[in-house]
Nucleic acid binder design. Structure first.
Lengths: 151, 151
DNA sequence: GCTGAATAAAAATTCAAA
DNA sequence: TTTGAATTTTTATTCAGC
């Protein structure tokens, strides 16, 4: 009945108001004639993966999820979809070829993905070199990237 | 124990361990012979803008700031301030040494800075290798980084 | 300024119920 | 499965001291 809609409203409220604590949400929802207790808000926050962010100016603010990893993966997939040319593995190294101008961006995204077994990444104009911690890691990373390309 | 160093260690601990509550950090730091109380950790968390992220699998986890309000240069300066060890230039290359665990992050930040004359950056655990497009570019980049360190 | 001890405040969970 | 009331647990702050 209620939970999904309440959570949708919570998202809007977070956008429109400074929410410093869960009781603030209880009060804001009350204004919208939605009566819930702090316990329910606590559960919603867990459900929705909201975070309480300390603000530099002192105080705290609840905010929408930090899906950094998801966003990066999405960006990487899209960039690869647009610019991918080839992928090869040899020893500790993976070489990804892309359309000119895309190497640095892809390298940065791969870095941000923090792949297991990746030692470092270097991006040129149309080439990305990924150095793995071992040849095994390189093979595994190669497969991970192939999987990413197929999705 | 200085605050800055403790906070640097906290960053590393967050990377290496699942920290579900502030007392976990108190215990982890205690293990490293750093005695602080929960009150201090609470203040550190506010300082560092760490967030307690609800995990989909239930439970919570403290993590580094999701959407850092800081721009890349500020982040880079702060990271270098905390983790910088040395900087050297030779031919096309600049080698930056940092405290263990910081190489990849610094490399990514330097990449994101899009410095003129930088060809690519590779970050290991405690070393960052910056490859310039020419020896002149390397010299110039070296000076740019030194300037950044002095600010 | 930075910190710990004590405390207040806030958030998470338990339990019973719908 | 969802919820509120009560409770426990966790976190933030106050206050004193350094």
């Amino acid at each position: 009945m209620r939970k999904v809609e309440r959570q949708r409203i919570i998202r809007q409220l977070l956008d429109e108001h400074d929410v410093e604590k869960q009781e603030d949400l209880v009060a804001l929802l009350d204004h919208a004639d939605i009566k819930v207790t702090q316990a329910t808000i606590s559960r919603d926050i867990k459900d929705m993966q909201l975070v309480k962010v300390p603000s530099p100016s002192g105080g705290y603010r609840y905010s929408l999820p930090a899906q950094q990893a998801m966003d990066t993966e999405k960006k990487l997939k899209r960039t690869l979809y647009d610019a991918y040319v080839s992928l090869d593995v040899q020893d500790y190294f993976i070489v990804l070829k892309a359309l000119p101008g895309n190497g640095t961006a892809i390298a940065t995204l791969i870095d941000q993905m923090n792949f297991d077994g990746a030692f470092g990444t270097i991006g040129g104009d149309d080439t990305v070199l990924i150095i793995a911690k071992s040849a095994d890691d390189a093979q595994h990373l190669y497969q991970t990237l192939l999987d990413l390309l197929e999705q």
